[in-house]
């Protein structure tokens, strides 16, 4: 990172090529204790890139779904800790920002989780006994940028309702912000993941449709088509990709069928 970028009011275009709106107002924010002026309307991630930071970790899809850029911030003069996804949260005046690349989680050994015959509730208890340390403070729930009732799903796992916990934790994007804040050192996101896997293996009925399709795939149904694609050169691939038929937005199930049905 070039040094001059650190100075206030110095506009630079580096990193992810942030393009601020032409008549954007500039607001003052703090990044790792340094004061900067950035155009408003930028997200936290873009604002940090705007002043010169480059992200190799703690950023991902930039679409609010991968959970890599979960971030904590404060606002000047406010004691609260706020949370959000850096790629989704728009900067406000007085924000105090930093991105942390990684926080060590506890990941229990999941090998064999799908074939285990242990009752689901006991399985969770043996994989992650620390859930019984939960003090019920609810910090995780208040932290979650996805609005999941994290404490509730931990509570559900504790009382052996693995299916309930799996459903409650379903929206989790594994950003790990709850893990950072937990006073009982629980790794909530991994508990939820294990719970969902156990629920999927033991409690949720298997889909017949998926099974049928998997058999078709294994029987080599798509081998010839894949081989065809493998033969094509780059230009041809680009061409058929751009000219592909697309399902119209908002069409209901079964309403639309492609003209070329040879691959169905």
């Amino acid at each position: 990172m070039p040094n001059e970028n650190k100075q206030i009011n110095h506009v630079a275009m580096v990193g992810d090529r942030t393009i601020p709106p032409k008549d954007a107002r500039f607001i003052e924010i703090y990044i790792m204790g340094q004061r900067y002026k950035v155009p408003e309307t930028l997200t936290i991630l873009k604002a940090m890139e705007y002043v010169g930071y480059q992200f190799k970790r703690s950023c991902g899809c930039r679409g609010g779904i991968c959970g890599a850029c979960g971030t904590f911030y404060r606002i000047l003069g406010d004691h609260s800790i706020y949370t959000g996804l850096a790629c989704q949260t728009v900067v406000e005046p007085g924000m105090i920002l930093a991105q942390s690349p990684f926080f060590p989680p506890n990941r229990a050994d999941h090998i064999g989780i799908l074939d285990s015959k242990m009752p689901p509730d006991e399985h969770i208890a043996t994989l992650y006994p620390e859930i019984f340390r939960c003090v019920g403070c609810g910090t995780c729930t208040r932290t979650c940028p996805m609005g999941i009732d994290v404490m509730n799903y931990i509570a559900l796992f504790k009382r052996g309702d693995v299916l309930g916990g799996a459903k409650e934790s379903f929206d989790c994007i594994m950003c790990g912000l709850c893990v950072v804040r937990c006073p009982a050192n629980i790794t909530q996101m991994k508990v939820g993941l294990a719970g969902r896997r156990i629920a999927a293996a033991q409690l949720i009925p298997r889909s017949e449709v998926t099974k049928k399709r998997a058999e078709q795939v294994r029987a080599g149904r798509y081998e010839t088509m894949l081989a065809e694609l493998g033969q094509m050169d780059r230009e041809k691939l680009k061409e058929i990709y751009t000219s592909r038929e697309r399902e119209p937005n908002l069409s209901g199930p079964g309403e639309w069928m492609p003209k070329d049905q040879s691959h169905l």
Binding site: F132, V135, D149, N152, I154, A155
Partner: peptide
């Protein structure tokens, strides 16, 4: 049963 509850500790 109350709707959502956690362990009492």
């Amino acid at each position: 049963e109350i709707a959502t509850w956690n362990c009492c500790g």
